[in-house]
Design a binder for these strands. Structure first.
Length: 765
DNA sequence: GCCCGTTGTCATAAT
DNA sequence: TCATTATGACAACGG
């Protein structure tokens, strides 16, 4: 299936990148096995018709699989900061590597045998094909300089060649970056191929089948561009504008592009609560009767389009929220600023992007061109439809904004009048491709898209969403992550921590006890949880790591690089520090105890120096961490001068304040990180709520259409005493409170309709 | 030498 | 009132 191929391409890409940028770590072998295993397994599953959605595994917080593929992340590096040994022990040589070897070798052979009838296209050819597809566009001019044309041509001609060799060789030659940059314009995709993607792929495939390009090409390019967009989005400068202008442009473009040839005339009333609103009004021009049936004609098409548009938008939004977690490694492949291709495509984030136009843009570089080339009928339809079939829309209806901008149009679109004769002649026979789409739901969706893109959530709509859906949203669930809950345990356990740590550190070390205060070594994984729990704050290195993982320049989260990073000594026990920082045995062999003493002196804090100078008879650790009573007892045991007592009190005060400051800083940092996570969660919830609202509006519109058709049917069958049909201009059907339907004069219906319109307004007041 | 992050310290308020 | 904790502000220090 296409999805399986896309997955394969994704995994292939992961493999390639890991090979390219990771060191010769033994971890890679395990990754290779697993990714290849996944690859083979996916192929097998796809062969037997099982859909595999690995995206969920990759994007979800499942550390083992995710980290094996993407590299170690926070969950693992949390306990491996400052500890190179853990990296070697943890990842280096898997005890079952031999089994894995046999297993995956067998799998690979099996899959190769089974894949004999499958068409495999080299990954580079995918990109090359995309470049090649744009001979007239502005992109083509800059291509030759990067040598991509050569690659593309060779790739196209050499379709049957094995892919791995080509891919790896090009990677070594540095071509891969250029090739990957081609996809930088690609929009983010949610993973599922939309109908239009498939259609487009079909078209392109048919066009290029003679070139030997398989269908997989499209799928891979699709996937490739998704990843490249992630890379592109790492550019902080463009990200903001992308979310704003680009997104806004996207919303506009979606209106046209999302349906590939359809435009949206409005078609209904604003409220379904009153059936009288659906009743045709005699005050409206007869031409509007055409629209009475039009929803039924076009209603079947719109849901898909709406869904598709929304999926496009959601994919962008979600990726915008999630890309920081998923694309960190890919940022390494960012294009150099001067790269002609990248500059050529640099506008992509600002151009309307969705899944549908991804291929267009990648190959043609221009949105407007896309329409003319790929769906020429699209251009003419909205204009023609708006001018001829939709007399209601403004005269300058070629502008989408003017067409969709006015929500007041919604009031016109529901058939205000039901004229039987006119309905028979002119109405149904005019297949209005625009009818039924620009309905309330559509207008709402448009506004929603604007909302979502502008990131300015209308409070009114937000409250409406809350009311409408009685949110079971994750908002309440997030309370567990709140800073308050996080820090709630602090007070109860801090005292015990200090006493416990004081006992341990005083027993283990004769100097720099102060460093042990309240914080155990984070290299001691067994003690980590207990120690940190005692302090009351979980130093969420996972978040630190994730944050720095977003930054390509900060690879310190990788365990094998971390040991050269910062030395946050206050998280390490003095013993651990000593073990790590003591001079090598060679220095000790020199017998220079003086050097060691100097080193120890350097390790001592100022207060320890002072205490030593004042000949304080007990350790600073005891001074600081003993409970008040024990502390006083200790003081009473010794005959201390006033200066000594003063120093001891200062040492105690400063030591406690030092801990407090550390806790305070940790807490502050955790608060910030929690807020960041809350923002992400809220963005997810917001996107989900918007999606749900669109769903509701869609179903609402379908219900409206159903009601309208039923109304028509019932009304059309009614006959007066003379056997003639009732005139819709004079009579209307109305639902009574008991469920019965009454035929009443239209004047009465209008009055009641007005009355019901006022009620909600009064309620709002 | 400057910048920046980390850490310790002080003053002060809060508990 | 005293001890402790929390926190802003500042300075020292090192990369």
């Amino acid at each position: 299936s296409g999805r399986a191929v896309a997955l394969i391409c994704l995994l292939e890409d992961f493999k390639t990148k890991k090979h390219k940028h990771s060191g010769p770590s033994a971890m890679l072998s395990l990754k290779k096995y697993l990714t290849e295993g996944l690859l083979q397994f996916t192929i097998l599953l796809s062969l037997i018709g099982v859909r595999v959605d690995v995206d969920t595994y990759l994007t979800s917080q499942l550390p083992p699989l995710r980290e094996i593929i993407l590299g170690p992340s926070s969950a693992y590096t949390q306990t491996q900061f400052h500890n190179l040994r853990n990296t070697l022990d943890g990842y280096g040589i898997h005890p079952k590597s031999i089994d894995l070897d046999n297993y995956f070798t067998a799998r690979r052979l099996l899959s190769q045998v089974r894949a004999l009838d499958r068409f495999q296209v080299p990954t580079t050819e995918v990109n090359a094909w995309l470049v090649h597809r744009d001979p007239e566009g502005s992109v083509s001019g800059s291509q030759p300089s990067s040598g991509l044309t050569l690659e593309s041509s060779s790739g196209l001609q050499d379709v049957t060649a094995p892919d791995n060799g080509v891919r790896e060789s090009e990677t070594e030659q540095g071509f891969s970056e250029d090739l990957e940059d081609l996809g930088a314009v690609a929009p983010p995709v949610s993973g599922d191929l939309t109908k239009e993607d498939i259609d487009l792929i079909d078209i392109l495939w048919r066009q290029d089948i003679d070139l030997g390009a398989g269908r997989e090409v499209f799928d891979y390019s699709h996937r490739q561009k998704e990843q490249d967009v992630d890379k592109e989005l790492q550019d902080g400068n463009e990200q903001e504008t992308w979310a704003g202008e680009g997104g806004e442009a996207l919303a506009r473009n979606l209106l046209v592009d999302g349906e590939t040839g359809e435009s949206f005339p409005a078609q209904f009333s604003a409220d379904i609560s009153s059936i009288t609103e659906a009743v045709p009004s005699e005050s409206e021009p007869p031409v509007l009767q055409n629209n009475l049936l039009s929803p039924l004609l076009t209603g079947t098409e719109s849901p898909f389009d709406l869904e598709q548009q929304w999926q496009d938008l959601m994919s962008i939004m979600e990726m915008q929220a999630m890309e920081v977690n998923t694309s960190a490694s890919e940022i390494l492949y960012n294009t150099p600023p001067g790269d002609p291709l990248s500059t050529n495509y640099s506008l992509a984030p600002n151009t309307p992007i969705n899944q549908n136009v991804s291929l267009h843009q990648a190959s043609l570089g221009g949105c407007s061109q896309d329409f003319s080339l790929f769906s020429p009928e699209v251009e003419s339809l909205p204009v023609a439809g708006s001018s001829t079939l939709l007399p209601l829309v403004p005269s300058n209806s070629t502008s989408l904004n003017s067409t969709f901008g006015s929500t007041n149009l919604g009031g016109f679109f529901f058939p205000p009048q039901l004229n039987g004769t006119a309905n028979d002649t002119a109405g149904p026979e005019l297949p209005d491709p625009l009818g039924g789409l620009l309905d309330e739901a559509m207008l709402d969706e448009i506004s929603l898209m604007d909302l979502a893109i502008e990131e300015g959530f209308n409070p009114v709509q937000a409250s409406q969403l809350e009311e409408e859906f009685d949110s079971d949203s994750g908002l309440s669930l997030d309370s567990s992550h709140s800073p308050s809950s996080l820090s709630s345990s602090e007070g109860s356990s801090s005292s015990s921590s200090s006493s416990a740590s004081s006992a341990s550190s005083s027993a283990s070390s004769s100097f720099s006890e102060e460093g042990a205060v309240g914080y155990s070594s984070d290299s001691e994984t067994l003690d980590l949880e207990e120690a940190e729990g005692a302090v009351g704050y979980q130093p969420e290195y996972s978040k630190f790591c994730r944050m720095s993982y977003q930054d390509p320049s900060q690879l310190s989260c990788l365990p094998y690089l971390e040991h050269v990073g910062h030395n946050h000594t206050y998280n390490m026990a003095p013993s651990a520090l000593d073990a790590a920082d003591l001079p090598p045995p060679s220095a000790l062999k020199k017998g220079s105890k003086e050097k060691q003493a100097d080193f120890l002196d350097k390790q001592m804090s100022r207060d320890e120096h002072r205490a030593r100078a004042m000949k304080i008879p007990f350790t600073n650790d005891k001074i600081i961490n003993l409970p008040v009573e024990e502390f006083n007892e200790l003081l009473s045991k010794y005959q201390l001068s006033e200066a000594q007592l003063s120093l001891i009190r200062d040492i105690r005060r400063r030591g406690k304040n030092k801990m407090a400051a550390q806790n305070c800083r940790k807490r502050k940092l955790d608060t910030i990180l929690n807020l960041e996570r809350d923002v992400e969660d809220l963005q997810r919830d917001k996107a989900r709520l918007l999606r749900e609202k669109v769903e509701f509006l869609r179903s609402l519109r379908q219900m409206k259409q159903k009601v309208q058709s039923l109304y028509q049917e019932v009304f059309g069958r009614l006959r007066d005493e003379n056997g003639r049909p009732y005139s819709p201009s004079q009579y209307a059907l109305q639902y009574a409170g008991d469920g019965s339907v009454l035929l009443i004069p239209r004047t009465m219906a209008d009055q009641q309709a007005r009355r019901q319109e006022r009620k909600p307004k009064d309620r709002r007041k």
